[in-house]
Simulated assay, not measured.
Amino acid sequence: MPPSPAAADAFASHSSYASHPDREVHGVRQTKPLPTTVQRWAERRTGPVVAVRDASHDWHRSRVWELTGKGGARWYVKVSPSVKFFTRETRAYRHVVPALGHSRAPHLLNSRADDLALLLTAAPGAPAPGLRLTSVEWRAVHSQAGILCARLHEAGELDRADRTEAEGALAAAAGGAEKYLGRAGDRLTGDEQQLVRDYAAQLRRVGPVPLGYIHGDNQPRNWLWSEAGLALCDFERTRPAARVQDLVILAVTEWLDHPDRKQAFFQSYGWALTDAERQALRCLTALDAVNCLAWGPDNGHPDVTARGRRTLDRLMREDRP
């Protein structure tokens, strides 16, 4: 599933998650209440909570709340949308995220498997898309993102199980093409469907690529920017995979329109992509496009749909002139 849209332009306060205005349906404000059992569980660690704010993404399965204590201290509670995401995120916070360094991500204070709940500290900063940054500031953001992504991708040796999962990641991505093509249906022409199938076949043949731990939703809405620098958040998709998979969203959004940001990222990232990675990245953008065209319209996200259509149109122009 593609990530939900970028954060809104304004942010009422610094947040360790991309905050959205309260959603409205037919003019009525819609918020998600924090389950009482989960709040009581959190308060056993935080002490009494005096304010709760819905800080969820604008997606029906996103459930995140900001908690404020008597002295103004803040924390976040996240209820994962699935056991898989809960397992990935708790493991990431314990074994991968520490490689980012102090203040470069929230910290996991506690987790509760029965409710798929995580209690997190509030990392400094607000999501970059809402800060109206200058071009110079955006380059600085991407430069620091390159540093943090390199740290994440190299966060320890992969054990046997993780290496097996990472080695199969590109084949697994290619294997998802038919599922997304089926969901997208007639949103793609016959020629576009064949283009996606061709790229899926190519992805299976790219050969070895560097492996590591990836963020899984690596884009500015999950980059928190402040005077202290950059921090990352939202690790529910963090997993062992081909490192290049972490660059797909950036390649079809930020870097396509702003090559200077791409240059800043790679200067800090520390190495250039191999030929196999460049080929894999192009194939992955085609799969991202059909994924977006399958998911966006069905979930009411025109910006995700537009991302997929733009990528597919560009690939068709370049490959089927």
Rank of each mutant, 00 (worst) to 15 (best):
Y93L: 02
G216H: 15
N110A: 08
S56G: 12
P321D: 08
C292M: 11
E165Q: 11
M1I: 04
T311N: 06
W255H: 08
L211V: 05
S268T: 09
N222W: 07
M1V: 07
L230V: 06
Q267W: 15
R221V: 12
D198T: 13
G175A: 03
R205G: 03
M1R: 12
D298H: 15
E165T: 14
E43M: 12
Q30C: 09
G47L: 08
P240I: 10
P220A: 07
A51L: 04
A128C: 01
A306V: 10
D9S: 06
L293R: 03
D9E: 13
H258P: 00
D114T: 14
A161L: 14
L247Y: 05
P127V: 02
A171H: 11
L109Q: 01
Y269L: 09
D260G: 11
R160S: 15
D54I: 01
P297F: 13
Y76D: 12
A113I: 07
A276R: 13
A289N: 04
L230E: 06
L181E: 00
P240E: 02
L109D: 00
L211P: 04
H153D: 10
S4H: 11
S56V: 07
R317I: 06
S15Q: 06
A172P: 01
K84L: 11
Q245Y: 08
T285N: 08
R317D: 06
E254A: 04
L273N: 07
G130L: 03
